[in-house]
């Protein structure tokens, strides 16, 4: 089919699955790296009642924003690891040399990143919703928005990570580049959680988040692939 792929090369789908499994396996070998951002997420949210006071109404008002901002920051923390170790040990160059389209392989890495950073965050979020006195409708909305929003965070974040992977002190720079781009997700997601608590429909917010996800899914891997080629060259 594809003449540039040698006979002994794995096919694209195979390469995709292999890369995904490899990244997941590597992550599970070091569970602390999965757990640390989650712990950060929980601690940051816990700080707010302590700082503001445990008044349930106040907590309920600020909860959507607080939980989502904490989620943004937690996903920032895990972003740096997306390409860092592969860059250090040379695996990234091997991936770049592969005959398959880089953007598809990048997508495999982003999905792996989301499964180890976004997914646990979603599973943990109802608990934080309870901490913050959110009504049940809001907690459902929180889970739904995280489900649509965290993949967008991983996708946009992958561009920033790819741009800064060659730099020694990329961490703070990464947050400067990526956080402003997270703003639309934050706005629509936090609003959905807030509005759901009052009993309104959140279809508009969810469809906007869905549109963001579709856009990020199509454009971000291409931008990330281009950035990786620039950073590694």
């Amino acid at each position: 089919m594809n003449s540039t792929v040698a006979a002994n090369e794995p096919r694209l789908a195979q390469a995709f699955v292999t890369l995904l499994r490899r990244d997941l396996l590597l992550a599970f070998r070091r569970p602390a790296e999965i757990a640390n951002p989650l712990l950060f997420f929980v601690i940051v949210v816990t700080l707010f009642p302590l700082g503001i006071g445990p008044e349930p109404n106040t907590l309920q008002t600020i909860a959507p924003g607080v939980i989502w901002v904490a989620a943004l920051l937690a996903s920032m923390l895990s972003l740096d690891g997306m390409f860092r170790t592969d860059f250090d040990d040379g695996a990234l160059e091997q991936i770049l040399l592969s005959p398959h389209p880089l953007s598809v392989l990048v997508l495999a890495k982003v999905i792996a990143h989301w499964m180890i950073s976004g997914l646990p965050l979603i599973l943990l979020s109802p608990l934080l919703g309870l901490f913050m006195n959110l009504p049940a409708e809001s907690i459902v909305a929180l889970v739904l928005t995280l489900l649509l929003g965290t993949p967008v965070l991983s996708l946009i974040g992958s561009i920033g990570t790819a741009l800064t992977v060659g730099l020694r002190k990329g961490g703070v720079l990464l947050s400067l580049l990526v956080l402003p781009l997270y703003i639309p997700v934050l706005i629509f997601a936090a609003s959905a959680v807030e509005v759901a608590g009052v009993g309104f429909s959140i279809a508009a917010q969810l469809s906007f988040l869905g549109a963001l996800l579709a856009l990020a899914l199509t454009l971000a891997p291409v931008a990330t692939a281009a950035s990786l080629r620039i950073s590694v060259s």
Partner: peptide, 17 residues
């Protein structure tokens, strides 16, 4: 790359704000 990513995002940010 960053400027191009930003310019795609700018209308989205503007609209959402």
């Amino acid at each position: 790359v960053l400027a191009l990513v930003g310019v795609v995002n700018l209308p989205i940010i503007h609209y959402s704000v």
